[in-house]
């Protein structure tokens, strides 16, 4: 008994255990998603997050302890964004020919996203911390956390809302876009990437490489525009 307790204390305090757990849980969730033929509801990020969160809460492990291990994975968010240059380069001709709709959809989509967050916050009378932290919600985690910090938001809260947004977007994109009868893969991908960043982009690559590429373009460009627009929106709320 005491040996078991001692071993648990030894392992759960170190980075190795939590890093391994994250990889194992995600591998299982991803395999199940594959078995479910990539049904959006079987989203591997969604299921990994609740399983690991439950384990942390039940075992009484502080998030900081978990993050010491999981940081090795989290760190790769930046490099993965850089790596989107590859699909973009491979599809540069299609992207270049779609430059006008890309620019228009980017401007309208980015403003609509931030505006709708402000409307929602007013309707539900949300505290300023939540509102400010939610403004960059469609930008990818690493980018959104930086923006949130620079406008006085809570970066950890931003990260949660960003990931939840990504999961929501990845889950509803396919049925929603079918309902709206949008068949152009470029439009579908770009919209998902803009609204649901990397999680949506990962989902889009499962559907089709072209959809994925446009999602990557939407995600990168919206990361840039969100960084410009959020400080403006935050000053509107603050003033």
């Amino acid at each position: 008994m005491t040996t078991t307790d001692g071993l648990w204390a030894h392992l759960s305090g170190g980075a190795l255990f939590w890093l391994t757990l994250t990889l194992v849980v995600y591998s299982v969730a991803d395999r199940l998603s594959l078995l479910a033929r990539r049904n959006p509801l079987a989203n591997p990020v969604l299921h990994s997050v609740w399983v690991i969160s439950t384990i942390l809460v039940v075992s009484g492990t502080p998030y900081e302890t978990y993050f010491d291990g999981a940081y090795f994975i989290h760190f790769l968010l930046g490099p993965a964004t850089v790596a989107l240059a590859l699909p973009l380069y491979e599809n540069r001709r299609v992207v270049l020919r779609s430059l006008v709709p890309i620019a228009a959809a980017l401007a309208v989509g980015s403003v609509a996203t931030i505006g709708s967050v402000m409307v929602c916050a007013a309707v539900f009378d949300l505290p300023a911390t939540i509102t400010i932290s939610s403004l960059p919600k469609s930008a990818t985690s690493g980018v959104a956390m930086g923006i949130s910090q620079s406008v006085g938001g809570d970066a950890s809260l931003t990260a949660i809302i960003v990931v939840a947004t990504g999961i929501a977007g990845a889950v509803m994109a396919t049925p929603l876009l079918n309902l709206l009868r949008i068949t152009d893969r470029r439009a579908r991908g770009f919209a998902v990437g803009l609204a649901a960043h990397g999680v949506g982009t990962a989902r889009a690559f499962q559907v089709h490489p072209l959809t994925g590429t446009f999602a990557g373009v939407g995600m990168s460009l919206n990361g840039l525009l969100t960084a410009v627009l959020v400080p403006l929106a935050a000053s509107l709320i603050g003033g």
Partner: peptide, 20 residues
Amino acid sequence: TLVQQMALLFVPAGVGIVQR
């Protein structure tokens, strides 16, 4: 590899929900 496994990278930030 990085692009294919991008979804995994969001898990640690998502688990941050336990803090808030």
